[in-house]
Each structure stands twice: as C-alpha cells, then as structure tokens.
Design a protein around this nucleic acid. Structure first.
Lengths: 236, 236
DNA sequence: AGCCCCCAAATTGTCAACAATCGAACGTAA
DNA sequence: TTACGTTCGATTGTTGACAATTTGGGGGCT
C-alpha cells in the first residue's frame, strides 16, 4: 500500500492528465530543478504533445502549488524557501492534529490493525541499515505513516487537501533536504498509534501536533547547519 | 475593506481569468444552480469567448472545488451535500484555530485595532434590524471577521488555503442555507478578539475552535429543520 | 415486453495557426 | 559612461477546425 498508489490513483485517460502526472512526478523526483522556468514549446516538443494539452497540465500543476504562473510571462517550478517550509509545518500541525483526532474516532478495527503493522515493519526496518540515496517516492516510512493516519480520518476533503496538495510540497522539500526520519520520529509515531488504538482522540491530536512541531524543529536545526550552496542555488 | 477585495485581488488581464472570475462570482451568488452540468459550447457562446479560454477558466474553477470534472463527460457545478458541509467545518476548526493562535502572536497593533473596530461596527449593526435577502458577497459580518483573523496569521499559505479555496465553499453553502450570524456568534467573536488583544494564542485557538464547532452545531440543527425540498432539489 | 446492438448527433479532447505581449539587444543622446 | 527609447525575436494567449468519445434513441432478436 504505497503512498501514491492510493492518493494519486486513476489511470490517465487523457493526454493532459498523463502530462500532468509525468511532470508532477518529474518535479517531485527532482528531474526538474527548482525555480526553473518552463518553456512551453520546448516541453511540448520533448513530450511530443500539443501546447494546448501541455498548458492544461501546467494549469493542474499550478493548483498543486508545484508551479507558479504569471500572465504573459510564463510558469516556473516553485523555488525553495525556508519560510514556506515553516508555513507548511504550521498548517500540517493543525490539519494532521485534527486528522489524528478523527482517525482515533473513525478508524475501523482493520485500519487500526494495518497501522500497527505498518509501524511494526518500520521498527524492524530501522534496525537494519538502510541504504541512503534511495530517495524514491515510494517507501518513505514517515510519509507512509502520516498518510495512513490521514486516510483514517474518513474526512474526504481533509484527505484530499493533505495528500494531494500539501504532501506534494512536503515531498518537494524533503527530496531537497535530508529525509528526516529519525529514531525519535519512530517513537513519536508509536505514541500516536497507542492513542489511536485506545480511541483517545484528544490525546492523538496532542501527540500528532507535538510530533509535527518536533519535526519542524528538527528540520530547522538541519537547515541552519546547511551551507547556502546546499540550500538555495536555483539559478536560471 | 471588503472580503473579496483583498482575497481575490488583481485585475483580470487575460480572457480566461476574466471568465474564471465571472463564473466564480456567478456560482457563489447563485446565478448557476448547484449540480447543473456545464455545456462548453453554450457557455462559450453566451460569454462570447472561445471554448479554449472557457476550458481554462473551468480548470481554475475545478481547483477551487466549485465544479467537478470527469474526462470525456464534462464539468458540473458542485452539488449540495450536508456531509461535505460538515467535513468543511471540521477542517475550518483545525485551520482557523491555528490561524487564531498565529494571529494572537503575529498581528500588528494596527491590525488588532482594526479587528476591534470591525467588531464594534458589527455590534452596532446587529442592534439595527438588517434587511434580509441582502445576500450579496460583500458585507457578511461573520465572513469579514474570520477573514480578518486569518489574514492576521501572517501565514501566506494558510491564508490562501482558507480565503481562496475553502471560503468559496463556505459561501456556496451559506447562500443556500441561512446566513448563520446569530447574536451568540457575535459574543464568541468578542471573546476571541479579547484573547488576541491579550496576545494569548493558546486561548485564541481554543475559543476559535469552540466558535467553529458551535457554528457547525447551529448549522446542523438548522439543516434538520429544513424540508428535503429546501435542501437537495438540484436536478439536471 | 425486455434486452442488446448499432448508429447518429452532440459533446469533449486535441491540434496547429494567428494575434498579443514581453524581454533583450541595439542604437542614440545627454 | 549611463540612461532611455526603439526594434526585433521569442514566448504566451487565443481561436477555429478536426478527431475521439459519450449519450440517446431506434430497430431487431429472444
């Protein structure tokens, strides 16, 4: 049950859809550098599609907040900004806190069981050394966990807002920082699952908010130790 | 300082943009019935624009969640759903709670002062009887208040997510229900502003969440007393 | 009658050409 | 040299026509 398989499901039946998914993947996997301007004729030729279809795909990317667009000027991949990352953490704290509360209330027994199993797998996986550089979209333990909790909230719009829109940005930033999955995060995950298992929504929310805030602080510390070159050199 | 003047600012420089704003306004003001299918040739002819530009506008509407679209089938105005309304309240509770907390931390003295004045005007306005049926987009006291608090959070993305996306839906539903501004809401607003004035972010969040939850309950009671005809007769 | 297949009309997706706008290079003048 | 205005190339916005798909109805078969 990988993240994208559920959240970005349906087959692309239309060319614009396929372009959207391809470009989205390319951006999230780092195939396109942050801040780069998108040339419509160039991209359309590269993918062998018409400019019209490409423009529709770009429109969808704009709604995912992966590109910004200005009239008569063009679109460009979003660029890296620490402030924006911090803003996203604040929003995640609020929304995922609520998601955890709702998950504790609404998850089926089966879903709780799946969540516990997921955590079990992560616990074993962290003991065995994982090869670095494996920054593929799938198999990010932290993302899988959060996705699972969000899905348990049973609030369709909340799920869409988080999984489709906000988590694209989370991936975007995560790829360009370090994958921030620490042993501490695992412990926090366990506490949250405990609360959900006990159906303690209040506690689940408190713990999830604490976890997101802690992740934010970890990211902030990490950012302060990075050189400017490692951070924001997105030219062109 | 009307709601839309700030949140949906810039002039439309492009035809697709103008179409988007016109259609959005039309949907939010009730000019287009909920659930109705959108005929591209018909609408394009009615507005005297090309189908391509119209399609781009529809794409933007889709991202605002005001229309839903299925490939090869077409777009239609979102339809009325009590479940969706309740989902939106849950999300608002989380996000606006956070917004209130941030507003208490980050608002300038000037902004706090403006907020207090806004409340003062509402207090006087509610004593004088307001004419019903004036469901225009501007001058909804409740929306103005919430907008002001959200704006004070200084979190640009949070502001966009709430003001641009979610509050369009709030208006959509509010127009088709009663404008739910009760004296109780005014009192709750006052308490929130007190907390913000004291820079008590924790309390501001608690009170805002309480307020949103209370609004949700008021709406739910109202919905239970409505006949099915008043609710969901959105044919075609 | 009920069901299935097929066809036609309408609608949506896609494309390539045209018009409008922006950015940069160049030249000129102070 | 620097600043400004102009012109040209390139990019984006817009349009109308073409291709692919869905929808609705009519006819035939069981």
């Amino acid at each position: 049950m990988a993240f994208r398989s559920v959240c970005q499901s349906q087959e692309p039946v239309t060319i614009a859809d396929r372009m959207f998914q391809d470009l989205r993947r390319s951006i999230l996997e780092g195939g396109m550098p942050a801040g780069k301007k998108i040339s419509e004729p160039e991209l359309a030729a590269a993918y062998g599609v018409s400019r019209g279809s490409l423009r529709e795909a770009i429109g969808k990317l704009e709604n995912c907040n992966l590109v910004t667009r200005r009239p008569n000027i063009g679109a460009r991949i979003i660029s890296f900004s620490i402030d924006q990352l911090m803003e996203i953490y604040q929003i995640r704290e609020a929304m995922e806190g609520m998601a955890a509360r709702l998950a504790a209330q609404n998850m089926t027994e089966q879903e709780v069981h799946n969540l516990q199993e997921l955590l079990e797998r992560h616990r074993n996986a962290t003991t065995t050394p994982e090869q670095p550089g494996n920054n593929s979209l799938k198999h990010d333990p932290d993302l899988d966990f959060h996705f699972c909790v969000i899905q348990g909230s049973q609030n369709e719009r909340l799920i869409r807002m988080l999984c489709q829109d906000l988590y694209d940005l989370v991936r975007f930033y995560r790829l360009r920082l370090n994958p921030g999955f620490t042993p501490k995060a695992q412990i926090e995950h366990e506490l949250i699952v405990d609360a959900i298992t006990r159906r303690d929504g209040e506690m689940a929310e408190v713990l999830m908010r604490h976890h997101v805030r802690a992740s934010r602080n970890r990211a902030q510390i990490q950012l302060e130790n990075m050189t400017p070159e490692e951070l924001g050199v997105h030219e062109k």
